[in-house]
Structure formats: C-alpha cells, structure tokens
C-alpha cells in the first residue's frame, strides 16, 4: 500500500459526489486512515505467483439469449421519481 498517503477525504468524497461537513471530514479522515493501516497487512503477502486475472467467474460465465422483451411500463419507471415533468425525470438545467 502507498505508505506516504493519508486519504484526502474531501477530494475522494467529491469523487463519490457526497458533500461532507467539516466534522464528518475530520472523523472520516481518522477512521479511514486506521482502516487503511489495517488493510496494509496485505503488503506482507507474497502475491507474485497469483495470476493477474485470478477472479474466476464462480461458474456464472454465460449470457442469456439476446431477445427483445417488453420494457418496464413508463409509469412504473417514473413512479418513484422525486420530480418528474410529464413522462420524463426532472433535472436541474445543465447548459448555460
């Protein structure tokens, strides 16, 4: 694990699209540093013999036939939208 790093919580929370209060930021910084220190124990393992693509597919490596099926009804899809306009989800304006 990168030893020189402390997690920059504000930056990473921004990547995750979660705004934090200063109190949350301070608490998470200390907790996450401790967790990252714990997971650094994996550095002690010799992983040189483990193949790069080592995650087997659990026997689930197949796909279903590519057949058209009826879509979810529009009203069902929109039913839980916190805001909708007609048959569409409402979002803030994204162009100037």
């Amino acid at each position: 694990m990168p030893q020189e790093d402390h997690i920059n919580v504000r930056y990473v929370a921004g990547l995750a699209r979660i705004s934090l209060t200063p109190e949350e930021e301070a608490a998470y910084a200390s907790q996450l540093d401790r967790i990252l220190h714990y997971v650094a124990q994996l550095d002690a393992l010799d992983l040189s013999s483990v193949p790069e693509h080592s995650l087997e597919a659990h026997g689930c490596d197949f796909t279903r036939p590519d057949l058209a099926r009826p879509p979810q009804p529009l009203d069902d899809a929109l039913h839980n939208a916190p805001r909708r306009v007609g048959d569409q989800f409402a979002v803030p304006k994204v162009v100037e």
């Binding site: 990473v12 929370a13 995750a16 979660i18 907790q31």
Partner: peptide, 10 residues
Amino acid sequence: VKRRIILGTY
C-alpha cells in the same frame, strides 16, 4: 454508508 462509499471510491 458514506464511510464505505468513500473508502471504495478511494
């Protein structure tokens, strides 16, 4: 949940 999302993003 926030803690795990932030850790996972990192």
